[in-house]
Design a protein around this nucleic acid. Structure first.
Length: 518
RNA sequence: GCCGCCUUAGCUCAGUUGGCAAGAGCACCUGACUGUGGAUCAGGGGGUCAUUGGUUCAAAUCCAAUAGGCGGUACCA
């Protein structure tokens, strides 16, 4: 029995990212950045760590990481501040200190609100007047998820763009255009995805009509309606009323226990306006249902305006649709909300057909800065779920996975090490990635295997023979691989030295370059 | 959280109704005229059959608990 030390293991929900995935992610981020920039957004970053209290309402009550946020105590003692930003003092006039609770950011919007609020904060209890701010940002965010589905992690990337300081619905319409542009720039075919738009004001209008004023009940109802495409009308009716048992999983889903007439009204609403083709048709169906409530009317106007702008810019029904069932982040969206879904499907390892779900989400959040400063600052924006979108692009083979390795310089003899380093330097100066072999196994076969495994396109070989002749041997591994298919005899394989040439030392860079460009 | 299924070498799995010394493929390592990746051939290492407890003359195989995984479902800023 072997003695072993600690067991190496990775934290659940976190991943190691290999070169291929990194490559793909960089490409995605670059393409999206270009689109965002073209709309005038500038690139900002913010820290991964924030004071828990600044991140908003989803905070753990204790020191533990629960409620979805990773938190811990700052090792540094810092003053406890009052509402004016001054340190609190005890009766003997000493400033009260605390190890403040810090949290890993769970999205990029809350830190944006913090940054923006900080700019407006003057320290004298007053605030500057809100200015227009448009930024994009990408990077990892952290959520403590109890259950991890495939493709769902505790550390994952988001890529956001936001417009802070505008209440104009045009900026919401613009967000939809940006999402559409970005997805298409990434190679998603028009028609293979859909931006779905709704506004919270329609829901508010609906509840006004139903006489539901309880925030919690409203939220429960929306949660159910949001599941329309999953469980259908009957499912919705059941979950609003008595509850149901999911036939597949046999899981009991408790109902909301609403009175029958309310259930009926809601089902009518769902029936008449969900799954309706064409934005204008959706509006036409909604008008008689909600037009008589002030908030509903307002919501209808919002959608109408968005529709006009989208239409005028040629973002038609095959790109952006209205879907009154979608709810999204109930806790903080206040107006239009949108999400992007892919209609593509793929077969997983067991041959099962699967979809991808939402790959982008966003909406208007006019209350976020208010929580920090007490003043209302309108804002809207959206976020790409980078990892999920990457998975989509990979599964549908719209991204090449190949990451090519460097040119490898074999170490045939330690006495020429300086020369090998010079080879590498010359290649690098010509813009070619080059690596000198530093492995433990000095046999040439082992070095070749390493080159193969690293996906090196070319190998440079120079031993005593070459140095005597003033030459180097350069081997094209990619070509060699093709040729190897035709060779079955080992001695022939060895003697032919396929795709290999010996050239004057001075021609090294040019020769390698030539092989790489084929 | 709830329901169901699963857990045998690094990976994918086989192991018959409990019974002969725990297997295969791939991967890995070594070698095949010693300076050449592939293919082929010949060898080789590697498993407390998830863990713990129980039933039995006998358990990878039956039972229980625990852990981890998968599939639904719920939640999801």
């Amino acid at each position: 029995m072997k003695q072993r030390g600690l067991i190496p293991r990775k934290v659940k929900g976190f991943r190691d990212i290999d070169p291929a995935l990194n490559e793909q992610r960089n490409r995605l981020v670059q393409v999206a950045s270009k689109v965002y920039r073209s709309y005038g957004f500038e690139h900002w970053d913010s820290p991964i760590l924030e004071y828990a209290e600044c991140l908003g309402k989803y905070l753990p009550d204790q020191d533990t990481a629960d409620e979805g946020v990773y938190s811990f105590r700052n090792p540094e003692l810092e003053p406890i501040l009052d509402m004016k930003g001054n340190g609190l003092r005890d009766s003997s006039n000493n400033v009260l200190m605390d190890n403040h609770l810090l949290s890993l950011r769970y999205d990029l919007t809350a830190p944006l609100a913090r940054k923006y609020a900080e700019e407006l904060w003057t320290g004298s209890g007053q605030t500057k007047s809100p200015t227009l701010f448009r930024r994009y940002q990408y990077g990892p965010v952290y959520r403590f998820e109890a259950k991890l589905d495939p493709g769902r992690y505790r550390e994952f990337w988001q890529m956001d763009f936001d417009t802070v300081g505008s209440s104009d619905v045009a900026s919401d319409a613009e967000a939809c255009c940006i999402l559409s542009d970005t997805l298409e720039a990434l190679g998603l075919a028009r028609g293979s995805y859909e931006i779905r738009v709704n506004t919270r004001n329609l829901h508010k209008g609906l509840f006004e009509k139903l006489g539901i004023s309880d925030e919690g009940v409203a939220r429960d109802v929306l949660r159910v309606i949001d599941k329309y495409d999953k469980i259908g009308e009957a499912g919705i009716a059941a979950e609003l009323g008595e509850g149901r048992v999911d036939p597949l999983s046999k899981a009991k889903i408790p109902g909301l226990g609403m009175p029958l007439d309310q259930v009926q009204t809601l089902v009518n609403y769902v029936q008449s306006c969900i799954g309706v083709q064409g934005r204008e048709n959706v509006l036409a169906r909604l008008a008689p249902l909600l037009g008589d409530t002030p908030t509903g009317r307002f919501g209808l106007d919002e959608l109408q305006r968005i529709h006009e702008i989208l239409n005028g810019l040629d973002y038609l029904d095959n790109r952006v649709v209205f879907d009154p069932s979608i709810a999204r982040g109930l806790a903080y969206y206040t107006g239009p909300v949108f999400e992007a879904v892919s209609k593509l499907e793929y077969r997983d390892a067991s041959g099962k057909v699967r979809g991808f779900g939402a790959i982008c989400g966003g909406g208007r959040y006019d209350g976020l800065v208010e929580k920090l400063l007490g003043i209302k600052v309108p804002a809207t924006g959206a976020s790409i779920g980078v990892d999920r979108l990457l998975e989509l692009l990979r599964q549908t083979q719209q991204l090449e996975i190949a990451a090519t390795g460097p040119v490898l310089i074999l170490v045939m003899d330690q006495q020429y090490m300086l020369e090998y380093q010079k080879f590498a330097k010359e290649l690098r100066q010509a813009g070619i990635a080059a690596e000198v072999y530093y492995g433990q196994k000095s046999k040439m076969k082992a070095q070749m295997s390493y080159a193969d495994q690293r996906q090196a396109p070319v190998v440079v070989i120079a031993g005593g023979n070459e140095f005597e002749q003033g030459t180097v041997s350069v081997k094209d591994l990619r070509r060699g691989k093709e040729l190897s298919d035709q060779i079955t005899d080992r001695s022939q394989w060895l003697s032919d030295k396929p795709a290999q040439m010996e050239v004057p030392r001075a021609d090294l860079v040019a020769t390698v370059k030539g092989m790489l460009s084929d």
